[in-house]
């Protein structure tokens, strides 16, 4: 009987290979986030520490590298990672929706039963990977316009890294949008970090709950979310750095 046989593509372009690409790019971004969070936490120490740190980022490797050289390398790597990540995510997303048998356009149903719509054991995080990812993508654009280029500058523009931060987080809506974004990142990593380890073949437990990869994901997600949120909250509520 004829079925939905598709064109056979080599394993190096298979769904699994795309997941490798997502996992590696995702982990690169996780690595960046950890460093980025470490940097942000310097704000708790003192505005100077933070500014020094930002400055240091731009002078690292000099004179072998030009000014902001390493930063640009990082930027290129990150941009590549995010593009690869997003490309694979979108291509798998489209394929998977079709594969699961959703037919007939928007609002299509897979199963008609209204019972058990949320699956048997799925985590909330696993539901939100796609829209969560989109949220993060939008956030990144906003975030760069806000704190790197300073085109969006609610509390006034500045060249001082710390001041940019401080000015922005005077506003509740800024705080709120960062909080939403950080929660999205937290969820994304809760599932994503586990997923990346499983994708790269590093899970050896029969269920997700028992897996060390899952524990690691929960820790990473929590640390990153909280770690990022501490400085903005301190600024908004306690007027950190005055």
């Amino acid at each position: 009987m004829s079925t939905t046989q598709l064109k056979r593509v080599p394993a190096s372009r298979s769904t699994v290979a795309k997941k490798y690409a997502m996992a590696v790019s995702g982990l690169i971004m996780v690595g960046y986030l950890v460093l980025h969070m470490y940097g942000n936490l310097k704000a708790l120490q003192s505005p100077e520490a933070f500014n020094d740190y930002a400055h240091h980022l731009r002078t690292i490797g000099e004179p072998i590298l030009p000014h902001t050289g390493l930063l640009w390398i990082v930027r290129v790597v990150l941009l590549a990672a995010v593009l690869i990540h997003a490309y694979c995510a979108i291509s798998l997303w489209r394929r998977n929706k079709k594969a699961a048998g959703f037919t007939g356009g928007l609002g299509a149903k897979r199963y008609h039963s209204k019972q058990n719509r949320t699956g048997i054991q799925r985590s909330y995080a696993s539901f939100t990977m796609r829209w969560g990812g989109v949220t993060i993508a939008l956030f990144i654009v906003f975030h760069i316009l806000n704190l790197t280029t300073n085109d969006i500058h609610p509390g006034g523009a500045s060249d001082e890294p710390y001041e940019k931060l401080h000015n922005s987080f005077q506003y509740f809506w800024v705080l709120l949008s960062y909080t939403v974004a950080m929660i999205a990142v937290g969820f994304h990593l809760w599932h994503g970090f586990w997923s990346a380890l499983q994708t790269l073949g590093q899970n050896r437990s029969s269920t997700r709950i028992e897996s060390n990869a899952n524990t690691a994901a929960i820790v990473i997600a929590a640390v990153i979310t909280i770690g990022f949120l501490v400085p903005p909250f301190s600024i908004y509520f306690f007027g950190l750095g005055g």
């Binding site: 046989q5 598709l6 394929r95 929706k97 594969a99 696993s126 997923s195 997700r208």
Partner: peptide
């Protein structure tokens, strides 16, 4: 065969 990719 048209199966989806695993997202763990």
């Amino acid at each position: 065969e048209g199966f989806g990719g695993c997202t763990n």
